[in-house]
Amino acid sequence: MVDESVPGAAAPLGGAAPRPLAAELAELADVPTAFFRGDEVVFCARERYVAVVSALKDAGFVTCSDLCAVDYLTHMDRALPPAVVGERFEIVVNLLSHSRRRYVRVRVQVPADDAVVPTLFYLYPGVENMEREAYDLFGIVFTDHPDMTRILMPQDWEGHPLRKDYGVGRVPVQFKEAPGPR
């Protein structure tokens, strides 16, 4: 069961931690999993991403609640299970099972020099907007997505604003004696 010695491993505020999915799903048997604040997190390799999510879908996680990307450029030393090599980008998928009444989070490492991930559209058509958003704001391409275009930014926008190396806009100071942009 859950290792209580790991900080944050148990459910928050003493609630009962849900039964680990890895115990019942063969597809998850050799995939690193962890608990944080009561949520089960599955760290799966990009190659097995669709297979793992598909297995979870078959296990009752019929809705993809959320899909987003994270750019860990300036936080590469984040805590990960030993078997997982942290890459710059991460795709984070929150799946919801109505029958189990719980979420499971799938985190996929995506290297910066090959920011390509297979789409989940054919499992969950509801990720369409979310994957477009991740593409728009992070530049991560989802292969076989039916409409991989920008969704929030203008179509001719350059760059992907939520990347950590994308500058935050600053308003130039209008005083003549100002020593330049601060």
């Binding site: 900080p7 944050g8 944080f36 604040r37 949520d39 997190v41 609640s65 959320d66 987003c68 984040r78 805590a79 984070v92 929150n94 979420y103 989070r105």
Partner: peptide, 19 residues
């Protein structure tokens, strides 16, 4: 502390989640 959380509530329009 460092870490990642997802919290969701039922807003008038549906599931409002914050990661």
């Amino acid at each position: 502390p460092a870490g990642e959380v997802y919290a969701s509530i039922e807003s008038p329009r549906g599931e409002l989640g914050c990661y």
